[in-house]
Design a protein around this nucleic acid. Structure first.
Length: 289
DNA sequence: GGCCAGGTGATGG
DNA sequence: CCATCACATGGC
């Protein structure tokens, strides 16, 4: 057993981190111990890692614990990326608070970008979540993961691509996937298994090149790519223009009479660059309050 | 009961 | 290139 402390720059909003993680019924979370357990698929093997908050928003501190000392460096860097422990909140606030949405930015300052354990998992999860209300979307993911994934130390690993690639549409229909959604999910897994799609390569690509790589895949549209960039790769300058939640939040925040147009969304994105992902997080967060 | 949900692909101009 | 529509199903 090894352990290492991480001290992110303040403010880091631990409460919002826990709040957001707990939206997902598959996440392992102990509120009373301020503890998360994370399933990580590593270069070699896999690990269940504990992340425990021991600080506050103004003095953030996290202890990361794992079993295999040999994988420690990789685990730490993955965890830092997943929970945005290298976030630069003062820089973000300084860049954004003079923009059109200063009030929102001040209210949610310190909210990190929270990623999933792998870009593969983010891709599949977002296909499953397309066009569904959050509650039902999580229900579908829950059924999918608990039926075809693996449980280890009380934590669920997302179903392996090999397993998913061998599923039939009918099997996913039983979980109440739509026909097309089932085809999309199985299709993506098959592309990964046959080597046509390598999610690891995305790390090296610019946002634009990632679009070019992912968009041709059946079932993957702009919204899904943007979610992969934001929640899979942790890119900081993503404003998912096609997202109905973002649209509604902007409408509400700016007192618009209808949802913003593509052009308006593009203009906002420019204005909030290079940190529009944070505004996206704040906007989503503001919807659930 | 009707509209909506953290969309996408197919079709037709 | 843009507008519209079918898809599916639960939530409210």
């Amino acid at each position: 057993m090894w352990s290492e402390m991480i001290y992110p720059e303040a403010p880091y909003d631990v409460e919002r981190l826990f709040g957001r993680v707990s939206m997902d019924p598959l996440q392992y979370i102990e509120f009373e111990n301020r503890l998360l357990k994370v399933p990580l698929v590593l270069n070699q093997g896999e690990a269940v890692v504990s992340v425990q908050s021991q600080g506050t928003k103004e003095r953030p501190a996290f202890e990361v614990r794992g079993e295999e000392i040999s994988t420690k460096d990789e685990v730490i860097s993955r965890i830092r990326a997943m929970y945005d422990f290298d976030m630069k909140p003062r820089d973000i606030l300084g860049t954004l608070d003079s923009t059109t949405i200063g009030e929102l930015v001040e209210q949610y300052a310190g909210m990190p970008i929270i990623c999933e354990p792998s870009t593969y998992c983010t891709l599949l999860k977002n296909i499953v979540h397309q066009q569904l209300n959050m509650k039902f979307a999580y229900t579908l993911t829950y059924r999918f993961v608990t039926r075809y994934g693996r449980e280890k130390d009380g934590v669920w690993f997302y179903p392996d691509a090999e397993v998913v690639s061998n599923l039939t549409v009918e099997e996913l229909r039983e979980l109440q996937f739509s026909n097309r959604k089932a085809e999309y999910v199985i299709g993506v897994a098959r592309r990964m298994v046959n080597g046509e799609l390598n999610m690891d390569e995305l790390t090296e690509l610019s946002n634009e090149d990632a679009y070019k790589k992912l968009l041709p895949i059946r079932g993957v549209g702009p919204w899904t790519v943007e979610c992969v960039l934001l929640f899979g790769l942790g890119r900081k300058d993503i404003l998912p223009a096609g997202d109905v939640g973002i649209q509604n939040a902007i409408k509400k925040w700016f007192n618009l009479t209808s949802k913003p147009t593509k052009e308006e969304l593009y203009a906002y994105h420019e204005k909030w660059s290079p940190y529009s992902s944070y505004v996206s997080m704040y906007l989503w967060e503001s919807l659930s309050e």
